[in-house]
Amino acid sequence: MLDNISILFQAPIFAVDLLVQGLLIGGIFVLAAYGLALVWGVMNVKNLAQGDMVILGGYVAYQCTLWGMHPIIALPIAFMLLFALGWGIYATIIRRVVDRDMFTSLLATFGLSLLIQQALNLRFGPEVKIAESGFGTLDFGDLTIPAIRFVGLGLAAVLAVGLVLFMRNSRMGQAIRATAQDPRAARVLGINTDRVYAFTYALNAAICGAAGVLVAMIWNIQPFYGIVHSIRAFIIVTAAGLGNLPGVVVAGFGLGVWENYSGFIFGAEFAVAAVVIVLVLVLMVRLFQMYRVRQVVR
């Protein structure tokens, strides 16, 4: 570990490379976390299947490569397929747990996570897969960065801007924001909150599908890798706070940089452990903040 740290000081180009690549992958983390923040903030559902939907989108891209298509073409396909699947999941499972306690929603989405994992395992097998993009690398002096990382960041930015504009300007986006603020008042004003919930969950699934396509082109995918992406999304949303989109962006990029640096310093096998450590630290800070504002009821 000390040797790796000394390398960063002796050859600053490695530190710059880790920083740039961490920022590039952080954009994809932001995309997946935004979907979780949407579902959590509007429906108060903690979706433990978040990462598995990301992996599902990745397998859509992989399947498209088997059919001779470029994985970029799979992005709108995965978006639409996961949107339809998300609507179906809401109608069959999620609508029954929206008004229940937190444990019920966690249990239901955990079961959904296991179902997606086993379905992918039966269809594609447990081997690691990747959707080859064929974009090559870009050279910036001594820096050599895969071009697909820039493409992924650009596509993630386009999707994020589109989502923000949709939430601000469309009628459904306004209904989603109104329902998130006060569901009872929204129903009084004539908003079909059940339809809003269905659309919100379906939109989250579609966002995960699009993020999964980018993940499959940049990293490896495997049926049981979803838990890591779920942990990343929970860290970002918890650290940023619900409804804080700028905070989600900052936390997502920060997590990407931290994961890249920790993987280099501690070794690639400890990169996931470093992410879990961040989750524990974020929960401890949030708990401490709750204790500070807690007051005795008189």
Results as ranks from 00 to 15, higher is better:
A239P: 02
G141T: 02
G51K: 08
R95T: 08
G212F: 05
R96S: 10
G51V: 07
L56H: 02
L255K: 05
D194M: 06
A251N: 05
A216P: 00
F9E: 08
T179Y: 00
L2W: 13
F29A: 11
P71Q: 10
A210S: 15
L114P: 03
A240R: 02
G68R: 10
A157K: 06
N44P: 02
L245F: 15
S262K: 02
P183G: 05
M53D: 01
V250C: 06
Q289S: 09
L203F: 14
A49D: 05
S262T: 15
R168H: 13
C64D: 01
V280Y: 08
M167D: 01
H70L: 07
I89K: 04
V249H: 06
K46L: 14
A202L: 03
W219V: 07
T65Y: 13
L19Y: 06
M69R: 09
S230G: 12
E269A: 15
S262I: 15
L31D: 13
V248C: 08
A185D: 01
L120V: 04
S170K: 10
F14V: 14
G190T: 12
A15M: 09
E269T: 14
A156I: 11
R294L: 13
L23I: 15
G152P: 04
F199I: 14
L107D: 06
F253R: 05
Q117W: 06
A202R: 01
I148R: 13
W67V: 04
N47Q: 07
I176E: 01
P126G: 05
N121A: 13
A156C: 14
I145E: 00
I130G: 14
M53V: 07
W219Q: 09
D194T: 09
Y261L: 15
D139S: 13
V257A: 09
A211M: 09
N204D: 14
A271V: 00
G27R: 10
T144F: 03
Y62V: 13
T137L: 09
V161E: 04
A185K: 03
N260E: 11
G27K: 11
L153P: 04
G154M: 10
I7C: 02
D101V: 03
L283R: 00
V60E: 05
G68F: 11
G51A: 10
G173K: 05
L38W: 04
L255T: 11
F199D: 00
V282I: 15
A156K: 13
L8C: 12
R123Q: 14
D182E: 11
V42K: 01
S113Q: 12
W67K: 10
T92Q: 10
F166Q: 01
V296P: 00
T144V: 13
F9D: 05
N260P: 04
I235P: 00
A178N: 04
L85S: 03
A147R: 14
G22N: 12
S170Q: 10
V16Y: 05
I116Q: 07
L81G: 01
G22Y: 15
P246D: 04
A240F: 00
I145K: 07
I73W: 11
L31C: 14
P126H: 06
G173P: 08
L38K: 03
S230M: 12
N192G: 03
I265C: 08
P146H: 05
Q117Y: 07
L138H: 07
A206P: 11
A239C: 11
A268C: 00
L165D: 07
A268K: 11
L287P: 02
D101E: 11
A274F: 02
I25V: 15
G162A: 10
M80A: 15
A175S: 14
